[in-house]
């Protein structure tokens, strides 16, 4: 397999650009980590403070979890990068089937 030709005739220039891009990406990763920690604290706080009703807390923390997972998938697991069409299809198919299973267990089947 020979592929990935050097994008510039001078590899050093290409290298410097790549390094900078990596540093910038790492900065985005740290920002998304900070946001994830922040969302986690909010989720724990609304439960620990005991001032809210369950009908507010449950959808609210589920929403926070969904946002956190988007950060994990698209930044930490690089799904925002190019070449993730098949991974997206696999994951979203899995997610869709999973949600149907949860829905079925919680509504159609009763105990």
């Amino acid at each position: 397999m020979t592929n990935q030709p050097l994008s510039s005739s001078n590899p050093r220039v290409d290298l410097e650009y790549r390094r900078k891009k990596n540093v910038e990406e790492m900065r985005h990763q740290v920002i998304s980590f900070t946001l994830m920690i922040f969302l986690t604290f909010i989720a724990f706080a609304v439960v620990a403070l005991k001032g809210f009703t369950a009908s507010f807390i449950v959808p609210f923390i589920l929403l926070l979890a969904a946002v956190q997972v988007v950060f994990q998938l698209f930044y930490f697991m690089h799904m925002s990068h190019k070449g993730h069409e098949a991974p997206s299809m696999f994951l979203f198919t899995g997610l869709f089937l999973g949600l149907v299973i949860v829905l079925a267990f919680m509504t159609i089947i009763w105990w």
């Binding site: 991974p87 696999f90 994951l91 198919t93 899995g94 997610l95 089937l97 999973g98 949600l99 299973i101 949860v102 079925a104 267990f105 919680m106």
Partner: peptide
């Protein structure tokens, strides 16, 4: 990972 998602979703359900 897609398969794992289904597996964990059924355990959650």
């Amino acid at each position: 990972l897609g398969g794992e998602t289904v597996l964990f979703a059924s355990l959650f359900a």
